[in-house]
């Protein structure tokens, strides 16, 4: 007989009460056996009195529902808190703006048949809305599936993924210096892959996500992704160690630094080329069958998101330095 895992579902949330309620309801109606999973909601310092409402939810809810509170420290820290108190062998992550389909939990824990598999990711589909911005996100299939390159699955999207608890504990959980939403999932998967673990993708584990509805939010998301990218890059590659540099060498390093800053600025030239490409992109969208207005809008949004992503990378480089990201530092921060 196949083993049925005990699963802990962790939901970090911040000021998102209405859609959290929908998420929890969808999780209570899973096809998975009711006594085999628990739902852990970690309140990341919400200011909308979530705790008071929660007592009434717990009374109605048919499965184990638990609540933790922390000061506002970001989703990475919230997830770590959840992991600390989780009972299950498998930990599933879902975001508070997602709605799970009935069989989601059953599918997302299916396939741990190999010791090397650390996590399984699923599909994130878009909920239809009236806003053009979220229609655009749905059209480009933003975050729909795990990112893949020629060495296999690079990272899973934590909005819809499950991990083994042992693997999470082995690498010390999420890095809490990621105090913004975005970028913590490539980081944790990068560290798992360093230990030789691999990931799986299950198409049938579907959650529906409400994408960002305002331009401001979309750009902020991409800015954060850029920041996360820079943090990870600082961790992967290191150019110089300024601490040990004295005397004449210092001058060489100074010139090198100026050079690298110039190179970083050169990225803006790339942005100019991207800007010139907007009309071509628009034509391409039009060729795919969109209306003229939509194709121009989508092409400009393409540019806008690239722009804010690159600015995020630029700022993230300095912020990451300030926070002390450096090469192979993941071993130092084990709890």
């Amino acid at each position: 007989m196949k083993e049925v895992f005990f699963v802990s579902i962790i939901i970090p949330t911040y000021n998102n009460k209405d859609s959290l309620k929908k998420t929890v309801i969808s999780l209570c109606e899973q096809s998975y056996p009711k006594d085999k999973y628990e739902i852990i909601v970690v309140d990341d310092g919400s200011t909308d009195d979530l705790g008071k409402d929660f007592i009434s939810w717990q009374r109605v809810c048919s499965c184990q529902l638990r609540y933790f509170f922390q000061k506002n420290k970001g989703p990475a820290a919230a997830r770590n808190l959840g992991i600390r108190y989780a009972v299950g062998d498998i930990i599933a992550f879902i975001d508070s703006d997602c709605i799970a389909t009935n069989t989601w939990l059953e599918e997302i824990v299916k396939g741990y048949n190999n010791e090397k598999i650390a996590g399984i990711g699923g599909t994130i589909k878009a909920l239809p809305t009236a806003s053009k911005i979220s229609q655009y996100c749905a059209y480009i299939k933003m975050n729909e599936r795990p990112v893949i390159d020629k060495t296999g699955i690079v990272y899973l999207i934590t909005g819809n993924a499950s991990f083994k608890k042992d693997c999470l504990n082995l690498i010390g959980g999420f890095d809490e210096r990621y105090d913004f939403p975005g970028g913590e999932d490539p980081d944790i998967c990068y560290r798992m892959r360093k230990y030789g673990y691999i990931f799986q993708y299950n198409k049938n584990a579907v959650v529906y996500n409400k994408h960002k509805e305002r331009l401001r939010d979309l750009l902020k998301t991409y800015f954060n992704y850029g920041k996360g990218e820079s943090f990870l890059a600082l961790r992967k590659f290191s150019y110089w160690e300024l601490k040990s540099v004295t005397g004449f060498k210092w001058l060489i390093y100074f010139i090198k630094t100026i050079g690298y800053m110039a190179l970083a600025f050169m990225n803006n030239i790339k942005l100019i080329i991207r800007f010139l490409k907007i009309p071509f992109k628009a034509l391409s969208y039009y060729g795919q069958g969109l209306s003229i207005r939509d194709s121009v809008l989508y092409a400009s949004l393409d540019y806008a998101k690239d722009f804010s992503f690159m600015q995020g990378c630029y700022f993230g480089y300095f912020i990451g330095k300030f926070k002390g990201f450096r090469k192979n530092d993941d071993l130092l921060y084990l709890k």
Binding site: K277, F280, K281, A282, L283, S284, Y285, Y286, G287
Partner: peptide, 9 residues
């Protein structure tokens, strides 16, 4: 034709 031009990019 739009798709053709778009492909150039």
């Amino acid at each position: 034709i739009a798709a053709m031009l778009g492909n150039i990019a």
